[in-house]
Design a protein around this nucleic acid. Structure first.
Lengths: 329, 329
DNA sequence: GGAAACAATGAAAGCGATTGCATGGATTCT
DNA sequence: AGAATCCATGCAATCGCTTTCATTGTTTCC
């Protein structure tokens, strides 16, 4: 007894394959009696429609590709979950690939998705804009955390939240700051640095720029060491992971946080809450980011050639224990 | 100009579609001149073979399903990466789904994979053995961290590493221990508890059993609070995330680690290294776990009906800063 | 009561690839 | 030189499903 097909079911029920197909896809076109008979037979045989066959004729794979720049970055898990949940609700599955920070892998995978998925979401792309544009030509595509004129995008904008962070520190008496910049290939890093620079200039406070550092725990420790070379009493880390590295480095050197230095992270990943002291940071609206990306992509798939959409979701500042009054130095 | 197919290419090159197909799959059967002409045309047209069409005739989807119990658990990222890497090397893609700790979702997804993937890996399943067995009937399937006689499995065995952990604590003078048990639906949790119990009995030391606690940071904080209700000087947490919760709770209450209490985690996820003090824990061989699972699955796909394989990979104990000499109390 | 409308179903054409079999030309062997 | 091989290629069937169009039997309406 090989794999059940619509034919096995048709035969068993004494109807044609077309009727079986309709029973599943347009049940209102099939008489109730027959429909139920078919359903029963299907259940009994453990029938599952072959997605390959269906995909071949409908031209839809019911699948969205998801490329993340680095699955080990704690930024992604929640995003993945949200994307997956939304996709499932909209009737699609998600194929995940980890580009492991390689721009080449990114564009290669986009190309591969062309024949396996209906569209693709690229989260925190590392590739050049030109490469992305080219790779996605003719394939519904949504970029996450990277705006690009001719491709849809949804980005998390932390500008105003970082202003809030600055003000929070300023109120605590800090006047000398450090900016621990993130990787130069990351749009988010550039954007955040810019926001902080702007705030510092507007506020008229001192800002030491350090980095760029890798967006890893190690990178954070280096950043922490660099921070100690300045007289900044408060530091903006690129993200929470980096911030944790900073915290670890400071702890290792016996520097009290927030007693001697204040540190703020960004993204509010799990880490931010588990570390001690818990991180003052900027919460990214993960659920919204993922859900929005999928919705846009779905729209794009259903009506190809539409104008690209650009969504901007703000992060929100949240004060925790890694920031506090400036020490009397 | 619609999507390129082997026919567009065939026409363009003045050959038959069969030749084009062969040029890709059995290049040695096609004369060099023709082959190169075909490849050039394919590149020019941006041809990507339709995986649906191919899958339909070959019966292979070149795809493995991966179900994780909770993508937000830091245990998974590295595992996912390793699985994906190995799968890609073996010519398959990975379809990830997050069961969000729901047993029902797990079996539902296994069923769905039957028609979309060649096989499925279920990581840390929460479903009952019977449900899993039934859902996977006739579908190549490998279980991760859950043994089951008639399904292949690869598990991480921490028994001996936990013994080492016990000895390490014992040597530091600890005589009274606490076991902070993990979720009861988790096989790993049961297994670890058992190992620790056995060690404690063998050593003749006192062991307070607390829990079960959820495998989350919150669950860990509760565990930490519970721990303070005992006079144990050293605690085994179910995993690193729980251990971090414990650390946080102790820190919040001003209890020094390892000064007053020692804590050991399990799995050695990113968290373990970023937290302060860094966690003494048991390193799971993530890469091996993932790679082995994929290899077994591949074997199973290629030769269905083979005997299930069972692989056991040991974790290794690693001492860091969350454990130390027993305080003079 | 016959035409028109409708509801339920079947027959058959594809979707885009793979692959067994057939074919014809070039090479090799005796 | 003729038979036997071999190589490169084409033909056509097939995978399992969806969907258009045709067909049949039933209602509905004037």
């Amino acid at each position: 007894m090989s794999k059940p097909t619509i034919y096995s079911i048709a035969q068993r029920c004494g109807v044609s394959a077309a009727t079986v197909s309709r029973a599943f896809n347009r049940p209102e076109l099939v008489s109730e009696a027959v429909r139920e008979q078919i359903m029963a037979a299907a259940r009994e045989l453990g029938y599952q429609p072959s997605s390959a066959a269906r995909g071949l004729v409908t031209g839809r794979a019911e699948m969205v590709g998801l490329i993340v720049s680095d699955i080990t970055n704690p930024f992604f898990p929640l995003l993945v979950r949200s994307i997956q949940r939304t996709a499932e609700r909209l009737g699609s599955s998600v194929m995940l690939v980890d580009a492991e920070e390689s721009a080449a892998a990114e564009v290669r995978h986009v190309a591969q998705f062309r024949s396996r998925a209906d569209g693709v979401i690229v989260a925190s792309p590392r590739s050049s804009s030109a490469a992305l544009r080219e790779a996605a030509r003719g394939l519904p595509c949504v970029l996450l955390n990277r705006p690009l004129r001719d491709l849809s995008s949804v980005i998390c904008d932390n500008t105003s939240a970082l202003f809030d962070a600055g003000e929070h520190l300023y109120k605590h008496g800090h006047r000398s700051f450090a900016l621990l910049a993130g990787p130069s290939a990351s749009w988010a890093a550039a954007r955040r640095s810019q926001a902080i620079r702007r705030w510092a200039r507007g506020r008229g406070v001192e800002l030491a720029e350090l980095g760029p550092f890798r967006a890893t725990f190690k990178g954070g420790r280096q950043a922490g060491a660099a921070l100690l070379g300045t007289d900044a009493t408060a530091a903006f880390a690129f993200d929470d992971l980096t911030a944790c590295g900073v915290l670890a480095e400071l702890a290792a050197r016996g520097v009290a946080v927030p007693g001697e230095r204040s540190v703020v992270g960004c993204d509010d990943v799990l880490l931010a809450r588990t570390v001690t002291p818990s991180l003052t940071t900027v919460t990214a609206p993960m659920d919204d980011l993922g859900a929005t990306a999928v919705q846009i992509l779905t729209r794009q798939i259903e009506a190809p050639g539409g104008a690209p959409e650009h969504i901007r979701l703000p992060g929100v500042f949240v004060a925790r224990d890694s920031t506090g009054p400036r020490s009397a130095s």
